[in-house]
Amino acid sequence: MHEIVFIMGKSSSGKDKIFKKLIADEELKLNTIVMYTTRPMRQGESDGAEYYFVSDDTAAKMEAEGRIIEIRAYHTVHGIWKYFTLDDGQIDINKGKYIVIGTLEAYEKFCDHYGKEHLMPIYIDVDDGIRLTRALAREKKQEHPKYAEMCRRFLADSIDFSEENISKLGIKIRYFNNELLDGCIDQIKKDIIEKLAR
């Protein structure tokens, strides 16, 4: 049975909006977990909501203690930013259903840690031209836009989410978010209800 719905997709694929809509849907009753990051907080974010924002030293201590399920380090134009999931008691597959956002690599680590049979992969696919337009619009809204980092992330996603990597992890279903967000969410919801009921 699937207990963890795992949302993934390239940057600006709309996965954050989809995630928020799904957790707000009372019919689904999905619990969230909060991941950790060492990157600076963006405008409009708050600690414990989007992420737990921690220092590099704190992240290193947690890793040394063996508490990290998965961790990613990105060499950005502003230094190394780490994103990770901590085995901190937020997930108990015997007590509930959960929803998580992550990368393909994070999905693989979750499968290793919890067992692939407990995860339902939700891969959000978007045309690259649409994705780039969205990324640029989002960055323009920031008080201090980081265009170089936006471009680095856009290009890195082409490698991280290559067809080979997607196929290797056995992800066969894609949810397209090119235009109609509500239609994409409706299809995801339908599939979650069907698979979590098994």
Rank of each mutant, 00 (worst) to 15 (best):
E3Q: 12
V5C: 13
M8K: 05
M8C: 15
G9V: 14
G9S: 09
K10Q: 14
K17R: 12
K20L: 12
K20Q: 12
K21T: 09
L22A: 06
E26K: 15
T32L: 05
V34A: 02
Y36W: 07
T37V: 11
T38D: 13
R39C: 13
R39T: 10
M41I: 15
R42M: 09
Q43C: 12
Q43S: 14
E45V: 05
D47Q: 04
S55V: 08
D56N: 09
D57H: 01
T58G: 01
A59R: 05
M62A: 00
E63Y: 06
E65K: 13
E65I: 03
I68S: 08
E70Y: 08
I80A: 06
F84L: 01
T85S: 07
L86T: 01
D87V: 02
D88G: 00
D92S: 05
N94C: 00
G96H: 10
K97S: 04
K97P: 00
V100A: 02
V100F: 05
E105Q: 08
A106R: 06
Y107G: 07
Y107A: 04
H113W: 09
Y114D: 10
K116A: 14
K116M: 01
H118P: 00
L119C: 08
M120N: 02
I122H: 11
I122V: 15
Y123H: 06
I124F: 00
D125N: 14
V126K: 01
R131V: 05
R134L: 10
L136C: 12
A137I: 10
E139A: 14
K140P: 01
Q142M: 11
M150S: 05
C151Q: 03
F154C: 05
F154D: 01
L155P: 10
S158K: 15
E163R: 08
G170K: 03
N177W: 03
N178E: 14
N178Q: 13
L181C: 13
G183C: 11
D186T: 07
Q187C: 13
K190P: 06
D191F: 02
